[in-house]
Amino acid sequence: MAVLNGASTVIQLDQVNKWYGQFHVLTDINLQVKQGEKIVICGPSGSGKSTLIRCINRLEEHQAGSIVVSVDGKSIELSNDVKNVEAIRKEVGMVFQSFNLFPHLTILDNLTLAPIWVKKMPKKEAEDIAMSLLKRVRIPEQALKYPGQLSGGQQQRVAIARALCMRPQIMLFDEPTSALDPEMVKEVLDVMVELAKEGMTMLVVTHEMGFARSVADRVIFMDRGEIVEQGPPTEFFANPRNERTRTFLSQILHH
């Protein structure tokens, strides 16, 4: 999937560093994400990949360096300013490993909650958008059920629809299929592939290398808090340059 070189930068990370106490969890991260780009981040556990994308929507705070998100021509730098954070979160959607649907609300209410209370949309309009998105992820008939009544794959698709209800420009995925039974992984990946085809900017942390090969514009390998290697999937999988990358790939690509 080619990306026009003229596309604007939507996320810029410069020398981002983060510590948990004394433990250095992100080291000198430099990253530029263009609009429409699909980036897959992989690496061993503890490498900081989840921490990295969680810093982008300020679920985690970085201590050094800068993170700038640009949408609709406006550039906002992430800082302690609450207004900045809220503005960024309106444009950045996130899908979690453990789905995190709100169990006390119906599926429809899960989807319409943020549009009604954050974007101040009238209820009918929000519900129309929600139903159209549920159709897109192919479970419109579950609208009035509760999350506990759905399977894992259905819940994750609802979670994707919920994030999309806010019409974000960027979507972050934190290991979206790791908590699913194997037979449900495909239905979620299918939704993500469709989303990619429609031009959404996506940062996906995952172990699904098949998805990386078919959809990603760039694959990034992280280890011990640093970006070790990155490149287009064909070159990344065929000719990994770094020793650590080779070790990791040999561990996860089994026949």
Binding site: L59, M94, N100
Partner: peptide, 25 residues
């Protein structure tokens, strides 16, 4: 913890997240 994270990542303010998502649970 994921409940508050999901609520905040959707853009809900602290007060809204507490009232609509966290308190009922």
């Amino acid at each position: 913890k994921g409940q508050s994270e999901a609520a905040y990542s959707l853009g809900l303010s602290r007060g809204q997240a507490t009232r609509l998502v966290l308190l009922p649970q």
